[in-house]
Design a protein around this nucleic acid. Structure first.
Lengths: 232, 232
DNA sequence: GCATATTTGTCCGTATGTATA
DNA sequence: CTATACATACGGACAAATATG
């Protein structure tokens, strides 16, 4: 089995590259996981992956540890690492945490920095332009960036990191959705609405809109999710 | 330099021990960090620590990665790992995140499980008994357990993990306080008050009390902190 | 249930690159 | 600038646990 996406990591290290090999391997693996090329439940054997990536087993194991902490992989002692499989309960818990984090961002909108507000605008615009160009995976990326920016209004590095990890985790479930277009399209307008409410100073309305928005997305996702994985 | 607290990790593995050596080393290091034996800024050389702990450098590095993700250590590429040094800004950010998480717990008090409420009671009682027995470090542990239990009212594994990590991180700053007794003593009564408000169904009052409580603790801690580390 | 093959957990030695006295 | 100490990364080894026939 050849995996063209993971070849020759070591050679990719540029002259000015300041990151570790393990971090680079983790980056690539993360990419493959969140784009859905690596399906949940997949086992990642050390020897085989080490060969295709051309890194030693030790280095690969360090990369694994990084992704385990990001909850993208699970490590079963003496059995190996696997791409995480979310349960419906996980999805619900993630949305619960998102509601809390993102609403906290909206409530801080009045004191948010201009840069944070600009990021919010930019994310929505990126989504609209990607939709106009029919680039739906890019719409999905823009949507995640929007929610990151909503939380970013709070100006807290720790809240930013929390939501970043929750959204990365959530991608493990996104790929069970049949069509990214149908899933993301309806939220383009709602994102714009929220930005305008924030800009207009009515963060209470923005919060209500966001909560309703997240409820809809959660039930939609969980429904599709349970249909696909009846047991989890 | 001998470090009696880190000797012979490998030998400590019991017959039924299912955890990895790296995890056990991480546990011990974490213990030393949060109890203040390992002060912020300390460098942890791989070779020396590996010798003392009697584990290979590979295994030790795996333990380091775990603690870096917990924000107890920082990893400077090609320079090594160090015990994290918090800035006053970090402390403020941690309290901000705590306010959000713990208030979310109180707001969920009405629907909290009996087990979660029992943990809340138990933590306060543990603090009171430890104070009566003059065991002040134990009072500190009970206090952290109380705040963990407050968040636990929400019944969300992810919120639980977030607050756990925030509190572990905060211990990096606690040891700058001159006396754990003076710091923790005033909060014993306030913890009890909050429990009674929760039991009485007035989670709004509990939330106001908690917020005021956290404000006081934060300014107290930051003041002592800045006095000790004027530059950070 | 057993014997075998595979894979992980852990250690070691070594070569190379990087930072710092 | 050099020398030294240290981190990065590799590859091999072997015991222990797990998976497979």
């Amino acid at each position: 089995m050849t995996q063209p996406w993971l070849s020759n990591i070591a050679a990719e290290r540029g002259v000015l590259d300041r990151s570790s090999t393990a971090a680079r391997v983790a980056d690539l693996l993360r990419e493959q996981i969140i784009t859905g090329l690596l399906v949940p439940g997949t086992r990642l054997p050390e020897e085989e992956l080490g060969k295709v990536a051309k890194v030693s087993r030790n280095t690969l194991r360090e990369a694994f540890r990084l992704l385990v902490q990001e909850r993208l992989l699970v490590h079963e002692f003496n059995r190996g690492v696997f791409v995480r499989t979310l349960t419906a309960g996980d999805v619900a818990d993630i949305y619960r945490a998102r509601r809390m984090l993102e609403c906290e961002g909206l409530r801080s909108a009045a004191t948010a920095s201009p840069a944070a507000l600009a990021r919010l605008d930019a994310a929505v615009t990126m989504g609209e332009e990607a939709a106009a160009a029919d680039l739906w995976p890019r719409v999905g990326t823009a949507d995640l960036r929007f929610h990151q920016a909503v939380t970013g209004l709070a100006g807290s590095p720790r809240l930013d990191e929390m939501v970043y990890r929750l959204l990365a985790e959530l991608r493990l479930a996104f790929h069970t959705m049949s069509s990214p277009r149908d899933f993301h399209a309806p939220y383009l307008k709602r994102n714009r609405t929220i930005v305008e409410m924030v800009r207009g100073g009515d963060s209470g309305a923005a919060e209500r809109e966001l909560l309703d928005y997240l409820d809809t997305a959660e039930t939609q996702l969980i429904r599709a999710y349970e249909a696909q994985t009846p047991d989890a």
